[in-house]
């Protein structure tokens, strides 16, 4: 047998080993999270190594504790879920409203400073967010925005805008210019062209983008921690969960139930739109 045959066989087997390994490594922590959230805590402490528990052993007590409002002795995660949803939806909508015209300008229009804009965007990611956090903390305190969901939303918009514009630009540049020229001949103004011609065509990229911004906003932790920590009523789910872990008398299974509550919405959304996201995010990468 020559080298090519041997290698082809070896890699043929190896490939399946790797695929199986990948699935276990990526899925197992999530499975374990779910499993632990359903098992009674004393049972977990006795048998930490078990990775299966039948429905007969399940308990939903952990979820009850996490979701019950604080006024009735629970952890009040429903409130946190609402906060997270408000911030994430607002950040998503506003980012799109700002980035769609911006991406169009960067793709199609020649204007002063068009080349330099990219350096400005780079600044967003080049500097650690902890560096932005200090002055924003001071600034928002002065403006009275710290401790408000609105202030947090603005930060998320700024954090996601550059990637958002970059993703949209990759997609917009594939739309033929002749379509716009045709629209112009039909008497459309530029804004009308964007709304009625470009947006419907770019819908997949816009959806992928929306999903991306929502994901970043929903998962974010540092700014939520810095801005909102003082008032429990304002906490997002990520912050609420992190604070829960520091609390006394909170069992690990309750912590896992909180993790499931935090993870489930984003994973559900992701599986619903997985194809959109992968294609939208990497639209430009295949060009080399």
């Amino acid at each position: 047998m020559d080298r090519a045959t041997v290698e082809t066989r070896v890699f043929g087997v190896l490939r399946w080993v790797i695929i199986a390994g990948l699935v276990v490594v990526t899925l197992f922590p999530f499975y374990y999270m779910l499993l632990l959230s359903l098992r009674p805590i004393d049972e977990v402490l006795q048998n930490p190594g078990r990775i299966w528990a039948g429905p007969a052993e399940w308990t939903v007590q952990t979820y009850r504790e996490v979701l019950t409002p604080t006024s009735r002795g629970g952890q009040g995660f429903l409130r946190f879920l609402a906060n997270s949803a408000i911030v994430s939806v607002a950040a998503t909508v506003l980012t799109l409203v700002v980035s769609i015209p911006g991406a169009y300008a960067v793709t199609r229009l020649r204007f002063t400073g068009r080349r330099q804009v990219h350096f400005l965007f780079l600044a967003v990611y080049l500097f650690p967010s902890i560096l932005l956090a200090i002055p924003l903390f001071v600034l928002f305190t002065r403006l009275g925005l710290r401790g408000s969901l609105f202030g947090l939303t603005i930060v998320y918009i700024a954090q996601t805008l550059p990637v958002s514009i970059y993703m949209l630009r990759n997609y917009l540049s594939t739309i033929p210019i002749s379509l716009e020229e045709a629209a112009a001949v039909d008497g459309y103004t530029r804004l009308q062209t964007i709304r009625k011609v470009i947006l419907p065509l770019a819908a997949p990229a816009v959806m992928a983008n929306a999903l991306y911004v929502f994901m970043i906003a929903w998962n974010e932790f540092l700014f939520a921690l810095l801005f909102l920590v003082e008032d429990r009523a304002d906490w997002t789910v990520s912050l609420g969960l992190a604070q829960l872990s520091g609390g006394i008398e909170v069992s690990k299974t309750v912590l896992m139930a909180g993790s499931v509550v935090l993870t489930l919405p984003i994973v559900a959304l992701f599986f619903a739109a997985e194809r959109l996201l992968t294609e939208g995010l990497t639209a430009g990468a295949d060009k080399g």
Partner: peptide, 10 residues
């Protein structure tokens, strides 16, 4: 995709 707080806890 999953939230960092949740996966670090797991």
């Amino acid at each position: 995709v999953a939230p960092v707080v949740a996966v670090t806890f797991v």
